[in-house]
Write a protein that binds this DNA or RNA. Structure first.
Lengths: 194, 194
DNA sequence: GATAAAACGGAGAGTGTCTCCGCATTGTTG
DNA sequence: CAACAATGCGGAGACACTCTCCGTTTTATC
């Protein structure tokens, strides 16, 4: 009656299962990038050389798959936060991170809908991603507030919403420029009143 | 060889066609509000007591239907712009209009995806709506710039993007509050530098 | 009321989602 | 390594939604 036994039974996947899982992820990443976020899941399964059942067993919903595909990238944002905070002044770090966010979205425009679910409310699927992004923006904002160069009542989540929103918006030819100008406006509007 | 004859042949609809068209619009408005933006179009047709063919004849795409359903509401935004401009200081008018936009979206959260297509690029379908909204924000921003209380390089379209983006973002419990705080930040960030 | 034009409607083809379950693979045990 | 249980596979098929096509019905006109 010892050892781990009760609640979380994190079974080890059989080797073939691991292989398939990875294959699906690889194919999905390509497919999402090339053909947009609503590529047929059955197609992805086929391209990965597995049956539809296998895909759905590994990723119960489309969101779950998207999340898995982009998890590593989200983690990069968290890392960047730490790095920028160490290197730049509070406000500059915040600005730089926001710009990074924009660039990062531009490359993978697909994930915007996914990120959206992120601020939507408790959703098991995105729990991990959420805490990363949320943690990053909170750290940045708190530090900036402490430095006195940003208004005290600034809600980190508001900025996150704005960023995600802007990312969500259709990407015309000048999307990136527009997004960057908006980051400037947001930063400038975040300064203390008077 | 006289009279209008060439380009725009705006045929008058047969009375049954008019009736059906209206019925579809009514049902669609309800359905969108109650069951979200991706209610089955066949269901809407059924609820309106017409065949699927009829629905698609009147509205070639889902977007076209959404656009038609919300056209009047978008027009209200254009009217409000004029009214606010006449009554308030340039910056206050801008702020008020943006807040109105937020409220307006809150009520019909469905149209966000539609509005999105609006900034996406030339799309016949949304031409009318686009020109309304675009005209409104441009007038407001231009006036505000002229008054000197807003930076000269402010792009009206940027603000529009931000508004739509924020509207697009999932509506949690405090969505409205957050959106309103963001409008404040945007306005404040739009002031002239220094 | 006869005729042509306009509009209708719904069956069905095409496509995507997701489940179910008989069969195959894996890894463990003696 | 044989044999067995657990684990995982896969794809057929049920279901849902979109959109079209065309024979039938309704409307407007004379």
């Amino acid at each position: 009656m010892a050892h781990k036994r009760k609640l979380p039974p994190p079974r080890k996947l059989r080797t073939d299962a691991q292989r398939n899982r990875q294959r699906i992820l690889d194919v999905a990443r390509q497919a999402f990038t090339r053909r947009g976020a609503n590529t047929s899941l059955d197609d992805i399964a086929k391209a990965a050389g597995v049956g539809a059942g296998t895909l759905y067993r590994h990723f119960e919903t489309r969101d779950a798959l998207v999340e898995a595909v982009y998890r590593t990238e989200v983690e990069k944002l968290a890392v960047a936060q730490r790095e920028l905070s160490a290197r730049l002044s509070p406000v500059e770090a915040l600005r730089a991170w926001m710009l990074l966010f924009v660039d990062y979205i531009e490359a993978k425009h697909i994930i915007a809908p996914a990120l959206n679910t992120l601020v939507a409310g408790p959703s098991k699927v995105y729990e991990a991603s959420r805490s990363h992004v949320q943690g990053a923006i909170e750290a940045l904002v708190k530090r900036a507030i402490k430095s006195g160069h940003v208004r005290k009542d600034l809600e980190p989540f508001d900025l996150l919403r704005a960023l995600i929103g802007v990312s969500y918006v259709a990407s015309g030819p000048d999307w990136r420029q527009s997004a960057r100008r908006l980051v400037d406006i947001l930063i400038s509007g975040s300064r203390p009143v008077k």
